[in-house]
Design a protein around this nucleic acid. Sequence first.
RNA 1: GGCCCCAUCGUCUAUCGGCUAGGACACGAGCUUUUCAUGCUCGGUAGAGGAGUUCGACUCUCCUUGGGGCUGCCA
Length: 438
Amino acid sequence: MSEIRVRFAPSPTGKVHIGNIRAAIYNWLFARHTGGKFLLRVEDTDLERSTPEAIQALLECMQWLGLDYDEEAFYQTKNKPRHMEAVEKLLASGHAYKCERTSRDGKTGEVVMFKMPREGVIEFDDIVKGKMAKRAEDIQDFAIVRSDGSPIFHIANVVDDIDQRVTHIIRGDDHVENTFKHICIFKALGAPVPQYGHLSMIVNQQGKPYSKRDGAAFVGEFRDTGYLPEALFNYLLLLGWNPGDDREVLTKDEMISLFDLEKVHVTAAKFDMKKLQWMNGEYIKRLPEAVFTAELIRRVGEEGMSIPESFDLKYLVGQLQVRTKFLNDIPSQCRCFFSDDYPFDDKAVEKRLAKEGVKALLLDLVERFSKVTEWTAQALENTVKELSQGNGMGPWVHPIRVAVSGRGEGIGLFEMLQLLGREKTLARLENAAMTKAL
RNA sequence: GGCCCCAUCGUCUAUCGGCUAGGACACGAGCUUUUCAUGCUCGGUAGAGGAGUUCGACUCUCCUUGGGGCUGCCA
């Protein structure tokens, strides 16, 4: 049996859509599972949009997700001579003909048309959709060369697949109709017809193709909002496939060994951002502590904050990592530790500080905290607990949190105070009491 | 209009004729000595409709309905 070869054939437009990258993921997994080759073909025939920058963005995006490809990237524009060679062959064998045509946008000229068989049934056994069939008479002849002499997608795509010796074409559902046409071209060219697998689309809540109007739709947007590539990869994989048991968070090795194209679902899947968010949190939780720490240091540094030598970073990481949903949330969660110039959330201030009696409460706390001998989370918690007399620490906890961090949420309060240290805590409580509380 | 495809909780899905229909996300309630979160426990919500095959159908067949795709000198 010959080697399995699959390809990912995007047209670089600057942004990579999640539906598209999911096709890449499935191709990659199929190749890695079967020990075949995963090839990249850049369909750069749209000169307007296929800029070097757009190609670079595509490559970076694949690298980010760990989609490494075998062999050299294949550029469609470079194969134009072969496209035209095939056209000549089709013309010579009577499978194609020239004709005058007027396009939809009014261009008139001579194009080359592919001649469809007039009878018979075109069939193929789709790896995910099963048996597919269509009467040849239901498909009209179609153009393969424009009036300006450039080859059209149908011929370019097929010739490239022949030249790259692609054995399995795994692509989006929107190509099924093309597949019937392409099979006819393969046959007319005397080339073996590859196996096909058509992937359903990712749709929005209304069941329409998921687009940028529905939220983040391009891979770069997920990267920029702090999603881990592993989380996006895993989520996209699960959108249409599962290992057959209840496992959802899978390692790359598990994905590769368990992936089965035949078990990919035929139905369109609705994109659920909430579940992706949950999965991202799962992946962040599982990150090695050192990696999370490095990420924290980098992001905090980028925001212009510096971490003092004496700061107990390990302790902060222990508190922060389990509750981080997006890496981008890290700087705002950390600001109060590394800067005295932290912003106060208006709503939190209004709700927790700007209330009658809070000023006295904070000043009383300053008094009590200053007497704490050992500045630890436990000792501070005991102090507040004593005050609350078993009636709930809420009335104390909330004002303290807003006073020292400016926010209504964050890591555990007493852990936060321990990290801040006595001096800063007392100064901030006093400052908030005098300037914000009533 | 024509052709092709699809149909289990709100969402992603398990079930390869035996189902008290399972899991996850989301949601609700509770617990973690009533801080945010994590974690844990519990809870509700599903087989589009109609025929047929069968001892038995969510699973097989057909019809209806609903949804999607394609129908370019785009890819």
